[in-house]
Design a protein around this nucleic acid. Structure first.
Lengths: 212, 212
DNA sequence: CAATCATTTTAATCCAGATTAAAATCGGGG
DNA sequence: CCCCGATTTTAATCTGGATTAAAATGATTG
């Protein structure tokens, strides 16, 4: 019978499983990956997965929960450690991209929320929206403190997130390339945001009071 | 029995079918969409589709062929009408985005080339690569004529294409919004490329001779 | 109106992949 | 060495979705 949470062996295996699943889902989508695909990456039989999870849907759900947690963490760190809008955005992007291609195992891209069962769908949708809002407020902050040029925030957020979410479609895990992506993407994506060509070496305007 | 090409009724229906299919595939992926989904958008039964196409695989294949043709056309026009690197890139982006969200019906995003059968896969892969190369050479041209800042061309291309390819994941056909996207995306995406904040009102350096 | 080809539906068939139950294996204490 | 829970496999079942063949419906022409 499945254990609760802290059991070493169980928890570790479940974690491996979620990473394997995230990898598959990112590569071939929800319907496109069979449980056999995921199990194969673990050297197991498809049926074995049911020891850890109720069904396939719960598998994606858990992948998304994990991704949301890591994403929230990245956002918090970026907000805490960043000094001004654009800086926070860059830090966030770097951590986020690293989460997706880095060693800690792939994070699932939340691209199939509609396939979740209603309760899960609502929950993940809320997390996802909250995250978008947080990112957009970083952009807003950057515009207010003049580190980011005025722009259509919603569209800009969509563009940046799209560029990142698409990475798993063309990148298939090789470490040196991953490092390169983690270095380049934040630069490329923030280049379009910056007011100046070169990143300001000193923080721009102090925020104008109003801060979300 | 299926007609060859020019037959009016047949060709028109087949075209409607490809658009319906592209819409579904963009939204839910290859395995995620059933023939019933596509047929439903046409007011038909799933079995009816077999009158126009050998099987589901051929359906994606044809969607991709169509997308490649439109993309190539856009690229040619951009190269022909654009005056300098960044300008060509912008024109291309605008036409490409318009192809994806615009009226001419949705273009399929080539995100599932691996699901094609080998012969088709190779063919589409070649078209896709040729297209990437063409886009990258626009970037190169822009760098050479100093309208685009030096950057990692491959990564930049991936970022831009990703942002665009992701659009169908969050946009679900409503015309005014589509127009807004077509206006905004090229601006947002090219902002990161431009050497200056404002698009040069006059063409920059004359290309340095070497041109691909 | 009849004849004929075009188009679509109805009614199977088939298979992959999800899910489940029961049996087999594994690993460590007693 | 034996026992027990933890983990995984084997073997079946079930279902949705692709595919097909035959029948029904439409439309066009002579």
């Amino acid at each position: 019978m499945a254990r609760l949470a802290e059991d070493s062996r169980f928890a570790l295996q479940k974690d491996r499983m979620l990473r394997a699943a995230a990898h598959c889902f990112n590569q071939k989508g929800y319907s496109g990956t069979s449980l056999k695909d995921v199990a194969a990456r673990l050297g197991l039989t498809d049926a074995a997965l049911y020891y850890y999870v109720r069904n396939k849907e719960e598998l994606v759900y858990l992948c998304y929960v994990r991704a949301a947690a890591v994403g929230r963490e990245a956002m918090q760190v970026a907000v805490r450690d960043g000094s001004y809008g654009l800086d926070k955005v860059r830090r966030y992007l770097e951590m986020h991209v690293d989460g997706i291609v880095g060693e800690q195992g792939p994070l699932a891209i939340m691209s199939e929320i509609p396939s979740l069962e209603p309760a899960h769908r609502d929950e993940i949708l809320a997390l996802s929206r909250a995250h978008s809002v947080a990112f957009e407020s970083l952009l807003t902050e950057g515009i207010e403190d003049a580190s980011i040029r005025p722009c259509d925030i919603r569209m800009t957020g969509n563009a940046i997130m799209g560029a990142i979410n698409w990475i798993p479609k063309w990148f298939h895990g090789d470490t040196p390339m991953a490092r390169h992506i983690v270095r380049q993407f934040p630069l490329i994506l923030s280049a379009g945001l910056a007011v100046r060509d070169d990143p300001p070496s000193v923080p721009p305007n102090t925020p104008a009071g109003a801060r979300r």
